[in-house]
């Protein structure tokens, strides 16, 4: 067995010897603006995570605020909010992770099966389009359908079935379905692109050989396409699991128009954190920073753990 160092040395070809330190300086100087920005907007907030253990006072800033031990956490755990938002966040995100793979792969395979290439491209262009609309725009589109007085559903669709109008932004029951539907209306086309590209990269000889052996299209999908997509699926899932305590703030805040009556089914962690920041009081900021702390730590652990699990099962599919 060769050690990693040996392999590295072998890989390096003669022309690629490291430059002398002095010659590295111009390259290093190129990285200064980017490195400074990353430090400002990523590393400083990472140091700022100590805020979770402080009684936040906006005037005194991060370093000046007094320590308060685990007070923020006990405040958070005592409130009822934590369990509701954990249920919502994890529930929606688990559903999204599973459906993203199933629907994304299914749509990608279906698009790749089209006999007419141009038609397939055109459909793809149309399906991807909603991804590029902001959540604000989406919330207006949803409003066009669900508006109480003039909305398309209340004015046109419900009367067709002889049903009375519904005050959509007050009734929480349909919202889990509405939110999931809106999410897939927006993201399904974009989500399938990555699988579509992987399918395009599969060697066509595999299919030709299988066809000669008499394999049906269905057999080819299950025995060639899906196994070949294994790596990309594993990577997508690993990345998604890292954000299981996060998710799309706009979907849960803008689309239901921040309606208080719906908060039981729309309060996810990002929504809770934002509302507490907007509130601005010391205890709400404390609760928000404790939540954010849990979110960051758990997210990081989950990615590493998932990656470890994936690499145990199939080392090629691991992210790092």
């Amino acid at each position: 067995m060769k050690s990693r160092k040996d392999l590295k040395r072998e890989r390096r070809t003669p022309g690629q010897k490291s430059l002398a330190i002095k010659k590295q300086l111009p390259l290093l100087s190129m990285m200064i603006p980017g490195a400074v920005l990353v430090f400002m907007f990523s590393y400083m907030p990472i140091f700022g995570i100590i805020l979770a253990f402080k009684k936040i006072n906006l005037r005194q800033g991060i370093l000046g605020s007094p320590w308060c031990g685990l007070n923020n956490f006990s405040y958070l755990f005592k409130s009822n909010d934590l369990w509701i938002m954990l249920r919502n966040t994890i529930g929606y995100n688990l559903l999204f992770i599973v459906l993203n793979v199933i629907l994304g792969v299914a749509l990608a395979i279906a698009l790749s099966l089209m006999r007419q290439k141009l038609a397939s491209k055109t459909y793809q262009t149309i399906f991807v389009m909603p991804h590029f609309l902001s959540m604000i725009i989406i919330s207006y589109i949803v409003l066009a359908f669900l508006n109480m007085e003039n909305g398309f559903v209340n004015k046109i669709i419900l009367p067709l079935f002889g049903k009375p109008a519904i005050n959509w932004y007050v009734d929480e029951k349909p919202w889990p379905f509405i939110l999931v539907f809106v999410y897939y209306w927006k993201e399904i086309g974009f989500g399938c692109i990555i699988y579509l590209a992987s399918i395009a990269g599969i060697d066509t000889q595999l299919y030709e050989a299988a066809a000669i052996d008499g394999a049906t299209v269905r057999q080819q999908i299950f025995n060639i396409t899906l196994p070949m997509l294994r790596t990309i699926i594993a990577i997508q899932v690993t990345l998604a699991i890292g954000t299981i305590l996060g998710g799309d703030f706009g979907l849960f805040y803008q689309v239901p128009m921040d309606s208080g009556a719906l908060s039981d089914v729309t309060t996810t962690i990002p929504v809770y954190v934002y509302k507490n920041i907007a509130n601005g009081g010391a205890s709400s900021l404390g609760a928000a920073s404790a939540t954010a702390f849990i979110q960051s730590v758990v997210g990081c652990i989950l990615v590493i753990a998932t990656n470890l699990a994936v690499s145990k099962i199939d080392s090629d599919s691991a992210l790092f």
Binding site: I49, I56, S289, A292
Partner: peptide
């Protein structure tokens, strides 16, 4: 520098400290 950038993908300070850094610092 690759690690410098990868770490930020794995771990973030969360919205609260990001907000306070941006607005107070």
């Amino acid at each position: 520098f690759t690690y410098y950038i990868l770490i930020t993908m794995l771990f973030s300070g969360g919205t609260v400290s990001w907000y306070i850094v941006c607005s107070n610092v």
